[in-house]
Write a protein that binds this DNA or RNA. Structure first.
Lengths: 143, 143
DNA sequence: CAGCATCCTATCGGATACTG
DNA sequence: CAGTATCCGATAGGATGCTG
């Protein structure tokens, strides 16, 4: 996910120009599209940025303050990644000092629903997961 | 996510003993529970394992063949992680050669729905994302 | 204010070799 | 068969310093 990753090409194959079939209906044969999105969703800051932008656009340092713990470097990189994927828009107002507003695109807004569903699952099952972890670690420690 | 990560404590703050409020209803103030699950979902192999186990239990090498591209090391580590989180169960049959069956737990099965929702989003919007990436890279290249 | 650039560490993940 | 152990390159991500 670093410098634009540019995997781009790889599984060239099946690009015989008229591929409207979209085989990927079934998630097995995991089209790397799914993995890419899962990777973006799973990275440490992206979804926190998306959720922070839920209620409106924010400037760079507003986001920085909102997100707590994020370094300026990672905020920049995360925003670039989200912008590259078309999830976030970046509006520069050339003034002194400069003003840059970040906002969700329509695509970015549409991503919130499934991510929130996952968040709800996490909240609903956090205790079960914690309990499982403690049990696992306890057994591993005893044996 | 390596050796049991044990972040456990960290954002102690706001633990004023009588916190039955579960502020976490709202995903902002992202309880690290959500981040942990997002991290697990976002790692390279976990969800592929979960989806492979959707239709029934599988043995170690069956999973290995099913998943294509996963190294034996990463399959082991991924399975341990999933087992630790209570998403996958591990049943050893002490025979020669040994037989180990992996299956989803109820918790693991319940995770599939939100993950599939995300997968559907990825499939539905893959072209929009790809287009955004190409546009972004093109502009970056020109300037 | 909104960033690049640089350095540095920890972790991720692949390849390979060995074992009960 | 189902691992464990080791080595290694590639990223992720934090800290710090500089700039228009």
């Amino acid at each position: 996910m670093d410098t634009a990753t540019t995997i781009v090409q790889e599984g060239t194959s099946l690009s015989d120009s008229h591929m409207d079939v979209t085989i990927q209906t079934h998630p097995a044969r995991c089209c790397q599209a799914v993995n890419q999105i899962l990777a973006r969703v799973g990275d440490k800051w992206s979804m926190q940025v998306v959720m922070s932008l839920s209620e409106g656009s924010l400037r760079f340092n507003e986001l920085r303050r909102e997100i707590d713990g994020i370094s300026q470097r990672m905020l920049t990189r995360t925003l670039r990644g989200l912008e590259r994927d078309g999830l976030v828009s970046r509006a520069v107002t050339p003034s002194v000092p400069p003003r840059v507003d970040y906002a969700l695109t329509e695509l970015g807004r549409s991503l919130r629903q499934p991510v929130l569903a996952l968040g709800d699952w996490a909240v609903a099952n956090r205790e079960a997961v914690d309990a499982a972890r403690q049990a696992f670690d306890r057994e591993a420690g005893e044996i």
